[in-house]
């Protein structure tokens, strides 16, 4: 049963990815991205890590997609722009992506992966690891968020003087 489910989620993820890339209208792109994120969350669940799948739903599908939709609507980008250039650049992009995928997947298949040893990861495990030897990265990530906030606000502040 999980086999079928996994294939189903994989298919959904690929469809979502393609809509993000190919759809001229960014709004539908965002919808595709949402589909992609949710299907990945489903796959996490199948891969024995419910913590991540729930996080994925909350953070990605909940937060980031809303961000995108907000900006898309804010800049009223609904009208599909003459967006795709089938020039040389397009061909190179396609070629690069295809080569990348082929080499990657082939590398994977011939590598003697050892067995599939399912370990059920719970929030406790991640938390425990995070606060023991992963502590430094935890603090560093808080600092990363600080930089993100300061930058975003600083950029917006540039326009505050105008209104005054």
């Amino acid at each position: 049963m999980t086999e079928v489910l996994m294939w189903f989620f994989a298919l959904l993820a690929i469809i979502g990815a393609f809509t993000v890339v190919l759809n001229p209208n960014p709004f539908y792109g965002a919808m595709g991205l949402l589909l992609n994120f949710l299907s990945i969350a489903g796959m996490y669940m199948l891969l024995q890590s419910p913590v991540l799948s729930l996080l994925q739903v909350i953070v990605y599908a909940g937060g980031i997609i809303v961000f995108f939709l907000f900006v898309i609507l804010l800049l009223h980008l609904r009208r599909p722009l003459a967006d795709r250039d089938s020039s040389l650049k397009g061909v190179i992009a396609v070629a690069l992506a295809v080569v990348f995928a082929v080499v990657g997947v082939s590398a994977l298949f011939i590598y003697p992966m050892n067995g599939f040893y399912m370990a059920y990861v719970t929030a406790k495990d991640i938390g425990q690891y995070m606060l023991t030897d992963g502590l430094f990265a935890f603090e560093l990530s808080s600092f990363l968020l600080l930089v993100g906030v300061v930058t975003a606000i600083a950029i917006v502040k540039l326009y505050r003087e105008e209104e005054k």
Partner: peptide, 9 residues
Amino acid sequence: LSNSLLFIF
């Protein structure tokens, strides 16, 4: 080659 291609990639 089999186990090095992934590493090289």
